[in-house]
Design a protein around this nucleic acid. Structure first.
Lengths: 206, 206
DNA sequence: TCAAGAAATGAAGCGTACTTCATTTCTTAT
DNA sequence: ATAAGAAATGAAGTACGCTTCATTTCTTGA
């Protein structure tokens, strides 16, 4: 034998893979899933088109992985908020606020992951990932209803509704037909307040 | 000259156009936007592929028109409920219930219009159509806040949230990865109750 | 340095589906 | 009946973009 992967090579391969993922994320953030063709991803990563397929079985797998990575990151943030101090209501408010705020800052990335159409497999993945979001809220709702802070309700349905509510409220502001948001802070407060009211929580905020 | 459209011909052309729209709607309802290729639409309508382009500039225009037509129909129903008898809370509940119930009955049509992948123009149309839904709820909220039945709130944001909430709650049940809904009626009640609570309305339902 | 195997290249292959267009068929007025 | 113009046909044209693969370049161990 005359070739066996060295540690250095192993590292380089891993970094290539990472670069592809990053290039994909970058393109999606810039122009949506639509602009992340395999050849464009390769160009962005400074590689040839064909090499993508050495790292990913198909374009779909690449997308799914980028999506999952981004969601994992979001969820870590949400989980931290949920595990933090404050009443359940306060934490629910903070969790929604945190997500919405970040979505408004990185428009296309959030939009793509939440709402942009893609092929069936990516779509299925997106729904799966949304469920991960819903699960975070479901746990928070469970805590709130157990403590009596929230009204009795169908936890799964309410969790899905919360995710849907702030998502839809964002689609206008960040979607492909972008609108001017007169007052970001007011919008954020409104969305959060809606969600809190919806679960039967009480807050001083409007 | 030796040819001028007769009234009969005019009628036939109009009916052809209608048949194309119906064929498209039928195909979408059966298998989603995915299954509504131009050639399939033509086959379903019993026409040749090329003739579609005598009636519609492009496939996108066809889709957009079908979407708009379907939404118009939905909105008429919602409007009737909003204009009907009962407290604002009751009418809000009934409006959401009506939409959700119909969506659960015609899975693919609703899913296609809500969430299925499509090209950018259809997407923009879909967002526009969603806004028409939101507008219906906005008016209801205006009435409810004016009468003091609902809490003071950002009407646009809350309306969007309502649309998003029931939409997302439906994506699981009707999406491509269909789930069994243990109890449809309970799901419907949960979604409606969520929306009512969210706007600060009061209802005896759980 | 050299050979063997791994990895990268990028143009060509390929599938899908929208759109066009030369031809055919139908409709109307004389 | 006939001619002119409209409408329909459907196969071919075209575009797009994922995926492959023969070839080239690079990496490793002897």
């Amino acid at each position: 034998m005359a070739y066996r992967r060295s540690a250095l090579m192993e590292e380089r391969l891993a970094s290539n893979r990472q670069r592809i993922l990053e290039a994909t994320r970058e393109l999606i953030a810039r122009g949506g899933l639509r602009d992340a063709q395999v050849s464009a991803v390769a160009a962005e990563a400074g590689m040839s088109t064909g090499v993508i397929y050495r790292y990913f079985k198909a374009k779909t797998d690449l997308f799914v992985e980028v999506l999952a990575e981004a969601v994992t990151l979001e969820i870590e943030i949400l989980d931290a908020i949920c595990a933090g101090p404050g009443t359940v209501t306060e934490r629910l408010y903070a969790a929604v606020e945190s997500f919405v705020r970040r979505a408004l800052n990185g428009p296309n990335l959030a939009y793509a992951f939440i709402a942009e159409p893609a092929d069936p497999e990516v779509d299925i993945a997106r729904i799966r990932e949304r469920k991960r979001f819903a699960e975070v809220f479901r746990r928070l709702l469970a805590e709130g209803t157990a403590s009596g802070e929230f009204a009795a309700q169908n936890l799964e349905a309410s969790a899905a509704c919360i995710v849907g509510a702030y998502t839809e409220a964002l689609v206008g502001p960040i979607g492909p037909a972008r609108e001017v948001v007169a007052d970001r802070e007011a919008l954020i407060r409104s969305i959060c307040a809606f969600c809190v009211r919806a679960v039967g929580g009480r807050t001083g905020q409007s």
